[in-house]
Amino acid sequence: MKARHLLIAGRVQGVGYRDWMAREAGRLGLSGWVRNRMDGKVEAVIAGPEPAVEALLTLVRRGPTLARVDSVEESFFEEDVVPGFARR
């Protein structure tokens, strides 16, 4: 199980991105969290089986209907991740 830290830039705040991402992560059985940042980006940590993580990464790069994703910075996350997925 690998965890990833994500910084998502674009029109990703005020368009339901966090709710959408939390639903998709839950549907895929992933753990982690998602939150808005003061700089306008969305930050997230996702953890779970590699195929599910890769599936969410594909979705995150598109986002929900009203969002516009300009970039996704991705790095490995070395800390423990609490089971379940939370909006912060």
Rank of each mutant, 00 (worst) to 15 (best):
K2N: 14
K2D: 14
A3T: 08
H5Q: 15
H5V: 10
H5E: 14
L6M: 07
L6K: 09
L7R: 15
I8H: 04
I8T: 11
I8L: 10
G10R: 02
G10F: 00
R11I: 03
R11F: 01
R11P: 03
V12Y: 01
V12M: 06
V12K: 05
Q13D: 07
Q13S: 08
Q13L: 02
G14C: 08
G14W: 00
V15K: 12
G16T: 04
G16L: 01
D19G: 15
W20G: 04
W20S: 04
W20I: 00
M21S: 13
A22I: 07
A22Q: 14
A22R: 13
R23H: 14
R23D: 14
R23S: 14
E24M: 09
E24C: 08
E24K: 14
G26K: 11
R27I: 05
R27F: 01
R27H: 12
R27P: 02
L28F: 02
L28Q: 07
L28K: 11
G29T: 05
L30S: 11
S31Q: 05
S31G: 06
S31N: 08
G32E: 07
G32A: 09
W33D: 14
W33C: 12
W33F: 10
R35K: 12
N36I: 00
R37L: 03
R37T: 07
R37A: 09
M38Y: 05
D39G: 08
D39M: 02
G40T: 06
G40D: 07
G40Q: 05
G40S: 07
K41W: 00
K41S: 13
V42G: 12
V42S: 11
E43K: 05
V45K: 12
V45T: 12
I46R: 12
I46Q: 12
I46Y: 04
A47H: 09
P49Q: 11
E50R: 11
E50L: 07
E50S: 10
E50Y: 00
P51R: 09
A52H: 06
A52S: 12
V53S: 09
V53T: 08
E54T: 09
E54C: 03
A55Q: 09
L56K: 03
L56N: 06
L56M: 03
L56E: 06
L56C: 02
L56S: 04
L57M: 13
L57P: 06
T58F: 00
T58M: 07
T58G: 14
L59N: 04
L59M: 12
L59D: 06
V60M: 10
R61K: 15
R61V: 04
R61D: 11
G63K: 06
G63C: 03
T65K: 11
L66C: 11
A67H: 02
A67N: 05
R68I: 05
V69G: 08
S71G: 15
S71P: 07
V72S: 10
E73I: 03
E73T: 11
E73K: 09
E73S: 14
E74F: 00
S75Y: 02
S75H: 07
F76R: 15
F76G: 15
F77N: 13
F77K: 07
F77L: 13
E78D: 13
E78T: 15
E78H: 10
E78W: 00
E78N: 13
E79C: 01
E79Q: 12
D80H: 10
V81T: 07
V82P: 10
G84R: 02
G84Q: 04
G84S: 08
F85Y: 10
F85K: 09
A86M: 08
R87Q: 15
R88Q: 10
R88V: 10
